[in-house]
Simulated assay, not measured.
Amino acid sequence: MSTSTDRGYGFEYTNIQEGMTILNGTVGPETQTWIQRTGNPKYNSLSVNEQQAMIRAARTIINFLTEYEPWLLNGGIEIAQVKAAGGSTDVSDVRFTGLGQSVGLSLKSNHDAVRHPRVSPTIDIAHQWLGVNTDQRYLGEVAEIFNNFTSFCEFNNVERFNQLSNEQKKNLLYSPITACFSDLLLRVFNGPAGPDAVAHFLRYLIGDRDFYKAKADFNRGELLIEAYDFSGTMGPRHRLRMPTRCLEVIVEPGPTGLYNYINITFDRGWEVKMRLHTARTAIENSLKWDVQFVGTPRDAWNTRIRF
């Protein structure tokens, strides 16, 4: 069974390859290096059935793009694996550029997370997420949580997260971190910088460039494609409106009873769910968020296509 990372990179590789074939596109040196070192090896680690399903899905996606972005058929298209090309503020995985136009493609393979940011005592999370300086209250609380956790692990010779019970993870990490982080969000969103922080938060999650998101359900053979178009220039010409205020921030239990979820509701139909989890097996002073949109405006453009 392949890992989710193998499938994710394999799916990106397949879309680049199909883009090169259908669009007669080219790739730059950074993407070529990524293909050789990461994309091709991850694709080759997949089963034949997984590879064939990804080819069908990628071919469907590229043909969809040519229907709504017909300029892609005019030639001279360069295809980039975004992270390989240094696209830090672009949440797309693959970007197609040519003739002064560009369109991004965010690919999801049986999952829907948009970002995987970290939380630790050294990360200025409010500056990163909200565009404001992190207050001393949050910094002090997070430092104390991780210091207590480190002391507990050292005293009990705990070296791996899987040595901890769910109750220990909940009490030592998940509950206190989600509590102080949700309090920080409420203080900022309800403060004088609230409207700007809301806009910054959404831009942090979706980047600063418009894109299509294509989520492939390989079990059902179906694609859900959504247009994240904030400038009104993408093919469907259906502009999304950014939220202006936060309505609610709630900490919620997960399926195993760990209080490691935060649900954030904004106006205009936007809703974000964040899941806190351990990023690695070994104990470290860092956890990771899986962040996904569970609510977008009702009039957001999307379509479902079989492959």
Rank of each mutant, 00 (worst) to 15 (best):
Arg7Tyr: 10
Arg7Thr: 14
Gly10Leu: 09
Phe11Asp: 11
Tyr13Met: 13
Tyr13Ala: 10
Leu23Lys: 14
Gly25Trp: 05
Thr26Glu: 11
Gly28Val: 08
Thr31Ile: 06
Gln32Leu: 10
Thr33Glu: 11
Arg37Trp: 02
Thr38Ser: 10
Gln51Cys: 11
Arg56Pro: 00
Phe64Ala: 10
Thr66Ala: 01
Glu69Asn: 05
Trp71Gln: 05
Leu73His: 01
Ile79Arg: 03
Ala80Thr: 08
Ala80Gly: 01
Gly87Phe: 10
Val91Gly: 06
Ser92Asn: 04
Val94Asn: 02
Val103Glu: 04
Gly104His: 07
Leu107Gly: 09
Ser109Pro: 00
Ser109Glu: 14
Thr122Pro: 01
Ile125Lys: 06
His127Gly: 11
Gln128Met: 14
Leu130Trp: 07
Thr134Ser: 11
Val142Ile: 12
Glu144Pro: 00
Ile145Phe: 02
Asn156Arg: 03
Asn157Glu: 03
Val158Lys: 05
Gln163Arg: 03
Asn171Lys: 08
Leu202His: 09
Ile206His: 05
Lys215Thr: 15
Pro236Arg: 06
Val249Phe: 02
Val251Asn: 07
Tyr261Ile: 09
Ile262Ala: 02
Met274His: 06
Ala279Asp: 10
Ala282Phe: 06
Asn285Asp: 13
Asp290Thr: 05
Val291Ser: 08
Phe293Gly: 03
Pro297Arg: 08
Trp301Val: 03
Arg304Ala: 13
Phe307Met: 11
